[in-house]
């Protein structure tokens, strides 16, 4: 061969390109086929039906749950019908559950009933009726009580005394 006609490329030895195993190409094919955009999963109709049914059932249960549940403290604070209850019964009830009542609430309800304005001897609750905040000019319960008697009562009941109340009395 004429050296001049010999090409440079003929003097080079081509390096063999390392080829992966057949498993690589098999996996490549399966991976590519699984990625095809057009390969959307066909959901059978019965599966959709069940999904819809399940969603409807859950929605129904939630709705029933909220319908069954009553709002807390739905009862309104209706004013007691004092006419149907005797004074003695009310007094007895209040005395038995004195701790559940706020003094302001007691004073408010007691002064609303004309009969309660009477001072009942031996009835501490009636005697200790406190005026509502802001002052009620019609409240005469404390008029017939002396400060000493009020303090004695408070001490007996072991009520914590607010100094500001004492200043105002």
């Amino acid at each position: 061969m004429n050296p001049k006609e010999q090409h440079i490329t003929d003097e080079l030895k081509k390096a063999k390109v390392p080829l992966p195993s057949d498993e690589y190409f098999a996996q490549l094919k399966s991976e590519l086929l699984s990625q095809l955009p057009g390969q959307a999963k066909v959901v059978p109709f019965y599966k959709k039906w069940w999904a819809i049914s399940a969603a409807a059932s859950v929605a129904l249960l939630i709705g029933l749950f909220f319908l069954k549940e009553e709002p807390a403290e739905q009862q309104t604070a209706a004013a007691p019908d004092w006419n149907s209850v005797s004074r003695e019964e009310v007094l007895a009830y209040v005395e038995d559950n004195i701790d559940d009542f706020e003094p302001e609430t007691l004073a408010q309800h007691l002064t609303a009933i004309p009969e309660w304005h009477e001072t009942i001897p031996g009835n501490d609750l009636a005697e200790a009726s406190m005026p509502v905040s802001g002052g009620n000019s019609t409240n005469t319960l404390f008029d017939e009580l002396e400060d000493k008697e009020i303090l004695e009562y408070l001490n007996e009941e072991a009520i914590e005394i607010d100094d500001e109340l004492l200043i105002g009395s």
């Binding site: 390109v17 080829l19 190409f25 490549l28 094919k29 590519l32 086929l33 095809l36 057009g38």
Partner: peptide, 17 residues
């Protein structure tokens, strides 16, 4: 998709190299 799989089988090695 079947045809595409055949193309991969036929030409993937040559394209790889």
């Amino acid at each position: 998709q079947v045809a595409f799989g055949w193309i991969i089988e036929l030409h993937s090695k040559r394209l790889y190299t």
